[in-house]
Structures are given as structure tokens and as C-alpha cells.
Design a protein around this nucleic acid. Structure first.
Length: 689
DNA sequence: CTTAGGG
DNA sequence: CCCTAAG
């Protein structure tokens, strides 16, 4: 394996980014800002990388095998095998004319570099014709486009977004389906706008418009050729299970080497639904606490990526694994051994048109985004905002695709690999996507809220607005927690894979950072070159006018320290990141309900209070009620002149005091059992008062 | 997940 | 409202 478990050696524990992702211009910018902004990441690119590696492995199985056997030692030495390197160079030289992809590859970290070097080989290999790898990355880029949304503030958030985004995403489906290659090619460098006019409930005359700009980020040179996939993945549907997707592998035309039936696996973990709370956690201090673990290369997604890659091999070697027939059994259409999963947790990054914005966006969104697997951030254009005050404009630069983890036997064929990758991608796109709205890192779940209410229309928040794309299927699949993945794993190597799912905590930033190619030690020159390229192309890319922007992202060298800092930054910015729930003052009637419930149930059973009096008020959590009670007690105990906000009837406050007093005395004795009537007391007292 | 409290 | 420690 090229990638060693202990990449620490070379990078101080920092995992080498698996893949170059996103337009280098963007990436570079982000890096500079230290906010690892949003690079577009990579699921596809990752796939590409993996694929490349796999290809390489398979091609150079002899050497690689030997290496694999002793993975540990070799790995530690940190070295990429000489042979590999040489091979890589050779390949590389061959492919020089292929384009920037190579360059970017060169930038990659030493160890990974070898992989990447090989990658190009795969790409350039005439035999391969169209390399799925390349196409993958391109694909992702092409799929990404800018969505410019203009929405009335009072439009309900999710409604609007869902609607709009879906409009945009439909294209993706199209891609996924069959016309991917064609569409990509056709649309290659064009921009197209889709305008949808939707009845606007709130403001009839307003139009909701979606402008989808396809950025010619990808150059036509590396034409995307997904054709083969179309054929191979025709009518097969890939229902998605909650946590993973298994896709039947068609190996019809593929010949397998060896008696062992090659088993290809793509593992994907779907992020579990993350509640507000969870998301918050990602953003907060806890979040960065995880950082240390990153060094282990164990927990971060990125790490996972790498590790898996490296491990895959091992796994492949080791096992004649029999896959466990789980809930996914149905899915296996052809190759019983193939599994496809996609990592919902895939890093997501946000990209915005303006550098500054993007940075901000990154701050906020990235962490959260991770949770949903795919996300994009929307940056608002102030200009537009100013012009139209009643509308909120969003620009979604792109949607990032979740990381894909692919595991296939060395003996698998390139064709099989291609299919596997394609299937993975297709499966993800096909299932349909759910749109999530993230504001300051928190998911906005209440669809009924308007943008105004959620704060999405607020300028300060727009920068932190993000969207998530999640596979929508999962209908049939039994719920699987991220930790379940072991089931998917080959029996013999459970632990290795197991961890991947555990990294939900890792946030985008980390992942981003982690995914970023490490400083290039081998080819400094290249690095610089890349930078330059990145700079020059930045604007163009941003504008979507650069024909040649296909280049993979170049990765500027990042110091470990810098990475380490990320967590801190996050923490610092936590406030910005977290989406604070909109303030919803309790109405008098609510207070009354609360008081009544508390009188009856006491002050230690907020859950019951919630159920009893606020069952339908989804925005009132028991914690809210508890807090409200707290404030009520406080309010009741202070002079009326000192009270602020909407005045609460004195009688209610009196009841509050009574109930509070009563329950303070009885809580210990009565515990929860006594549902009886302290209320009477309070009522009585209230009446007296 | 709930509670209980501090922030 | 948020965040957390505890249970």
C-alpha cells in the first residue's frame, strides 16, 4: 500500500488528503484563509483516487502485493515504493499532455502522491478508454453549478429550498440515469439557467427563480465518459438503505482474474440524521476535541478515506470474505459480494462566489454540512439583497458529493471498477435527494418557518446558510446506525472499517483539512506551479468562464500546525456557526398553559409538561418550558417595573410563585407519582392574590 | 432522552 | 435560548 497507516511519520499524524478536490483556485484561497473554506470535495474525486489506486494496484499487482504483505513496515518507512514512484513518474510523463490533472496530482503528498501518479496512468491509459476516475471527478464538478435563488423572505424555508433545489437537482438525476455523459458533454461549458415560476403563497406576484449556472469547471479535454456505465447500469435500481447502499455489480463482461471471485465493495455510510443538538456539537468545542484523534488517522472521515484505501488492499488480500447477508441482501443483484455504500458523512464544503463570503460560509456551514453528507453553502450577494429587500438571494456554488468509499479486490477489472464507481454515484443520485437547510451550522427543520423567521433572510446569516443533500430513499432499509456498518464489512476486517462510521463528529473542516493534499515534499516546483495556476484560474473559475478550469484542485502546502488550529478557530467562531433558534416569546396563553401544567405536574417533570400542554408546539421543548418556568419564577419575584417583554398577567405570576413554592417543598416527597392537585393550592392562592 | 442548572 | 453534566 502506498498509504501507510502511520502517515504520521510524514505528516505528523495528519492524514494525507486522499484527493485533490475542487478547483484549485478555490481551494487555495480557502487554505490561505486558513478557513479551509470550501473546497469542493470530493466524493467523486475520492472515488477517482481510489479507483486510480486500485487500478494501479491491480496493474502492478506484483509489486504491490509484495508490499501489501508487509504493509506495516513499508508504510512506516513512509515510503512509497521506489518502484511505484518510478512507475508513477513514468505514467506521469506519459500523461503530461493530459492536462492539469496531472499537475494537481503531483502536488499531492508524498505517499499519496504515488497513488495519484498512478491515477493519471489509469486516466491516460488508452486501454481504459474513458477512465471512470476522471469522469468521476469531472462529473462531480459538472454536476455542481451555481444555484441562485431568490426567495421572498416569508416563503417558508424548506418549502422554498426544497422546491428550488430539487429543481436543480433533477438534473443530477438525469445525469445519474443515463444521459450523464452526454449531458455533461453537451453542457460542458455552457451555462444554462432554469427559471421556475412557482406560485408564491405569500407573495403571489413574486417569482421564485432558480438560476442554475453550470460552471465550465471541467474542461472538455478530459471528457467525461460515463457511457460505459450507462450500459452497465441500466435499469438497475439502487434503492438506498439508510446507511448504506449496496449495488449489484455487473460483471458480465468482466473477466475476473483468479479463482476468487472478486468482490468489489463500495462502502458508504449514510450520516445518521443529526438533530440540532448533534449538529451543534459538531460545531462546538467538543468538536475540536476530536482533533487529536485525527492524528490517529482513525476517526476523521478523511482518515477514514485514506485508511480504508490502504486497508482495502489488505482486506482484499485477506479475505475470501463472505459478506454477511444483511438487510441488504435484496440489493445484491449480480455480484453477491459487491456492496456499495456511500458515506453520508462525506465532507461537504461550501463554496461561494466571493472569496470573502466563501470563507465565512465555510466557517459556519462546513462543520454541519458534514453531518448531512452533502451540502453546499449559499452565499448571498449583498448587492442583490440591497436591491431587493424583501427577497433573499442565495447563490449555491455547488453541492458537494459525499465521500465514497470503495473497496474492491485487486483482481477486479478496470471495467468492474468503473461500474462500481458509477453505480455508487448513480445510486446516490438516483435515489433522489432530500434537501436540508442549514443555518449557522444548524439544521432548520421546521418547514413552516419563513426565511424571515428563521433568520435566513438576515444578512448576517446568509453567509452561514447551507444546504444538505441526503439520499432520500432508505425507505425499505432497516434503520442502521452509523455504527452498524460493521455488518457490511467483510467479516475478517471489521475493526478496520468499523471506525469509519464513527467519525460523524468530524466536521467538514477537518475533513477538508485532512483531505487537503499535504505539503508536497517531492515536487515543490509543481506545487508552486499549481499555485500559480490556481491563482490565475481562480477568478475565471469563479465566474464560470474558465474553459480550462477542469483542473483538479491544487493543494497548497499546509502545515500541521495550521490544521491543528482549525479546531480552535471553530471554537472561536462557534457563535457564528451555531444557529440560534429563533426567539419565540411565550404568549400569555402559553404561559397559562405552562403554569397550569406545572401546577399539576410539578417542576420536575418537564417532559410531561411538554406532553401535556405543548404537545403540538414542536418548537417548545421541555427544556424550553423548563427555562420558561425558570424565567417566570424570576419574573414573578421581581418588581413589575423590572419586568421586560410582554407583560405576564400578575395572576399568572402569582400562580407561578405558588406552584413553585409548593413544588419546591414537595418535590422530594411526592416525586413524580403524585399527579395530584397542588394546583388547587396554587389556584387558591392565586385567587387570593 | 431527561433533568437540572449555569451561561 | 444554549450547553452540559448527570442520571
Amino acid at each position: 500500500m502506498v498509504v501507510k497507516k502511520r502517515q504520521n511519520n510524514g505528516f505528523h499524524g495528519y492524514r494525507v488528503p486522499v484527493i485533490p478536490r475542487g478547483p484549485r483556485s478555490i481551494r487555495r484561497r480557502g487554505l490561505l484563509k486558513e478557513t479551509i473554506e470550501d473546497s469542493q470535495i470530493c466524493a467523486f474525486e475520492l472515488l477517482a483516487t481510489v479507483a486510480g489506486k486500485l487500478l494501479l494496484e491491480s496493474e502492478g499487482s506484483a509489486s504491490s502485493n509484495a508490499a501489501d504483505g508487509k504493509e506495516p513496515s513499508n508504510i512506516h518507512s513512509g515510503g512509497v515504493k521506489l518502484e511505484q514512484l518510478e512507475g508513477g513518474k513514468a505514467l506521469r510523463s506519459e500523461c503530461l499532455d493530459q492536462g492539469s490533472c496531472i499537475e494537481s496530482l503531483s502536488v499531492t503528498g508524498s505517499k499519496l502522491e504515488s497513488i495519484f501518479r498512478e491515477f493519471p496512468s489509469a486516466v491516460c491509459d488508452p486501454v481504459l478508454e474513458s477512465s471512470s476516475v476522471i469522469s468521476s471527478s469531472n462529473f462531480s464538478e459538472k454536476v455542481s453549478r451555481n444555484l441562485e435563488l431568490e426567495i421572498p423572505e416569508n416563503q417558508t424555508a424548506l418549502e422554498t429550498f426544497a422546491c428550488k433545489v430539487e429543481g436543480g437537482s433533477s438534473d443530477c438525476d438525469g445525469y445519474a440515469d443515463s444521459g450523464i455523459a452526454r449531458q455533461l458533454e453537451d453542457e460542458g461549458n455552457r451555462n444554462y439557467n432554469v427559471h421556475l415560476t412557482t406560485a408564491n403563497t405569500s407573495i403571489p406576484k413574486d417569482e421564485m427563480e432558480i438560476c442554475v449556472n453550470t460552471h465550465p469547471l471541467i474542461n472538455s479535454d478530459s471528457s467525461v465518459q460515463l457511457n460505459s456505465f450507462r450500459d452497465s447500469v441500466p435499469n438497475v435500481s439502487f434503492p438506498r438503505h439508510r446507511n448504506n447502499v449496496k449495488v449489484g455489480n455487473r460483471d458480465d463482461d468482466e473477466k475476473f482474474a483468479g479463482s476468487n471471485r472478486p468482490k468489489s465493495k463500495i462502502r458508504a455510510f449514510r450520516p445518521q440524521r443529526i438533530g440540532h443538538r448533534r449538529i451543534r456539537k459538531l460545531v462546538t468545542s467538543k468538536y475540536w476535541k476530536v482533533a487529536p484523534k485525527l492524528k490517529d488517522c482513525e476517526y476523521s472521515n478523511t482518515n477514514g478515506c485514506i485508511k480504508h484505501i490502504s486497508r482495502n488492499r489488505k482486506i482484499l488480500h485477506t479475505c475470501e470474505r463472505v459478506q454477511r447477508e444483511g438487510p441488504f441482501k435484496k440489493r445484491r443483484i449480480f455480484n453477491p459480494c459487491s456492496a456499495l455504500a456511500y458515506d453520508g458523512e462525506g465532507s461537504s464544503e461550501s463554496i461561494s462566489n466571493s472569496p470573502e463570503k466563501s470563507i465565512k460560509g465555510d466557517k459556519s456551514g462546513s462543520a454541519v454540512n458534514k453531518a448531512s453528507g452533502v451540502s453546499s453553502s449559499a452565499a448571498c450577494h449583498q448587492a442583490s439583497l440591497q436591491s431587493k429587500e424583501s427577497h433573499v438571494k442565495f447563490s449555491i456554488k455547488s453541492f458537494n458529493v459525499p465521500d465514497l468509499y470503495i473497496e474492491v479486490p485487486e483482481t477486479t477489472t478496470v471495467g468492474s471498477l468503473k461500474r462500481t464507481v458509477m453505480e455508487a454515484v448513480t445510486a446516490i443520485l438516483r435515489g433522489g435527494l432530500h434537501i436540508g437547510v442549514l443555518l449557522q451550522g444548524k439544521e432548520v427543520k421546521d418547514d413552516s418557518r419563513t426565511l424571515l423567521q428563521t433568520g435566513i433572510s438576515h444578512n448576517d446569516y446568509l453567509d452561514t446558510l447551507g444546504f444538505t443533500l441526503e439520499p432520500s430513499s432508505a425507505t425499505t432499509s432497516p434503520p442502521m446506525s452509523p455504527k452498524d456498518p460493521p455488518v457490511l464489512l467483510p467479516c475478517e476486517t471489521p475493526q478496520q472499517l468499523t471506525r469509519l462510521p464513527e467519525s460523524p463528529i468530524l466536521d467538514t473542516k477537518f475533513s477538508n483539512a485532512s483531505c487537503d493534499p499535504p505539503p508536497t515534499t517531492n515536487v515543490p516546483d509543481h506545487v508552486e506551479t499549481n499555485h500559480d495556476l490556481a491563482l490565475s484560474s481562480t477568478d475565471e473559475v469563479t465566474n464560470g468562464t474558465t474553459p480550462d478550469s477542469r483542473a483538479l484542485i491544487s493543494v497548497p502546502p499546509i502545515s500541521v500546525e495550521a490544521l491543528a488550529v482549525v479546531p480552535l478557530n471553530q471554537k472561536t467562531r462557534r457563535s457564528e456557526l451555531a444557529q440560534r433558534r429563533i426567539r419565540r416569546p411565550f404568549s400569555v396563553s402559553e404561559v397559562e398553559s405552562l403554569v397550569e401544567a406545572v401546577e399539576k405536574l410539578g417542576t420536575g417533570r418537564w417532559r410531561d409538561v411538554k406532553l401535556r400542554a405543548f404537545e403540538d408546539a414542536d418548537h417548545r421543548t421541555y427544556v424550553d418550558l423548563k427555562d420558561k418556568w425558570k424565567t417566570l419564577v424570576h419574573t414573578a419575584s421581581i418588581a413589575p417595573q423590572q419586568r421586560r417583554g410582554q407583560p405576564v398577567p400578575q395572576d399568572l405570576l402569582d400562580r407561578v410563585l405558588c406552584a413553585h413554592s409548593y413544588w419546591s417543598q414537595h418535590q422530594s416527597k411526592l416525586h413524580g407519582k403524585n399527579h395530584t392537585e397542588p394546583p388547587k393550592i396554587s389556584d387558591t392562592q392565586a385567587g387570593q392574590v
